[in-house]
Lab assay of single mutants.
Amino acid sequence: NEEPLPEGWEIRYTREGVRYFVDHNTRTTTFKDPRNGKS
Rank of each mutant, 00 (worst) to 15 (best):
D23I: 01
T28D: 05
Y20L: 06
N1R: 13
E10T: 08
N1V: 14
N1S: 14
E2H: 11
T28P: 00
E7A: 14
R12H: 08
T14S: 09
D33W: 01
T30L: 03
R12E: 06
Y20R: 01
F21T: 01
N1Y: 13
P4I: 08
R15G: 12
E2F: 11
G8M: 04
E3N: 10
L5M: 11
G37W: 08
P4F: 07
T26R: 06
P6T: 03
Y20S: 01
R35L: 03
L5H: 02
S39E: 15
R12A: 10
E7Q: 12
R19S: 07
T29K: 14
R19W: 05
Y20C: 07
R27E: 14
Y20K: 01
R27P: 05
D23Y: 04
K32G: 06
G17P: 00
P6G: 05
G17N: 08
G8P: 02
G8K: 04
R27Y: 09
F31S: 08
I11G: 03
N1P: 14
K38F: 15
K32S: 10
E2I: 11
T30V: 05
E16R: 14
Y20F: 11
T29V: 15
D33F: 02
T30D: 03
T26Y: 04
I11L: 11
P4A: 11
Y13D: 02
T29I: 15
L5N: 02
R15W: 11
R15Y: 13
F21V: 00
P4E: 11
P4R: 09
P6M: 04
R12L: 10
P4N: 09
D33A: 02
L5K: 01
R19M: 14
F31A: 06
R19H: 07
N25K: 09
N36R: 08
R35T: 05
R19N: 04
K32Q: 13
Y13G: 01
G17S: 05
T29Y: 15
T14C: 00
D23E: 05
N25W: 07
V18T: 11
H24K: 09
P4D: 11
V22W: 12
R27G: 15
V22N: 02
R35M: 03
V18H: 11
E7D: 14
R15E: 13
W9P: 00
Y20T: 02
N36S: 12
T28N: 08
E3Q: 11
N1K: 13
E2K: 10
T14Y: 02
T30Y: 05
V18K: 12
P34M: 00
G17M: 06
T28I: 09
E10P: 00
T14Q: 02
G8S: 04
E10I: 06
L5A: 03
R19Y: 06
T28S: 10
Y20G: 00
L5V: 06
P6H: 03
R27L: 11
E7L: 12
G37A: 08
Y20Q: 03
T30G: 04
H24G: 06
Y13H: 09
G8H: 06
N1Q: 14
S39A: 14
R19F: 06
E10Q: 08
I11F: 06
P34L: 01
G8E: 03
W9Q: 01
P34G: 01
P34I: 01
F21N: 00
S39P: 15
R35P: 03
K38I: 15
V22R: 06
G17L: 05
P34N: 01
N25V: 09
D33R: 02
G37H: 13
E10N: 04
N36Y: 12
R27Q: 15
T30S: 09
K32A: 10
P6I: 03
N1D: 14
Y13S: 04
T26V: 03
L5Q: 02
G17Q: 05
K38P: 15
T26H: 07
S39N: 14
E10K: 04
N25D: 05
R15K: 13
E16V: 08
T26P: 00
T14G: 05
P4H: 08
N1E: 14
P34A: 01
R27F: 10
G8T: 02
V22I: 14
T26N: 10
R35K: 02
L5Y: 04
W9Y: 05
R12W: 07
K32E: 15
H24V: 08
E2A: 11
T30Q: 08
V18W: 10
N25G: 07
N36C: 15
L5W: 04
I11D: 03
E10L: 05
E7W: 10
P6A: 06
T30A: 04
E2S: 10
T14V: 03
Y13C: 07
F31R: 07
V18A: 09
G37K: 08
P4Q: 10
R19A: 12
E2D: 12
E3L: 11
P6S: 04
R15N: 13
N36K: 10
R35S: 03
N36H: 11
D33K: 02
L5C: 00
K38A: 15
W9M: 02
G17V: 01
Y13Q: 06
P6N: 03
S39Y: 15
T30M: 04
H24P: 05
R27D: 14
I11V: 12
V22Y: 15
Y20D: 00
T28E: 08
K32D: 14
N36V: 12
K32L: 12
D23M: 03
T14H: 02
D33I: 01
H24N: 12
P6R: 06
T14A: 02
D33M: 01
T29A: 13
P34Q: 01
N36M: 09
T30W: 06
P4V: 08
E10A: 07
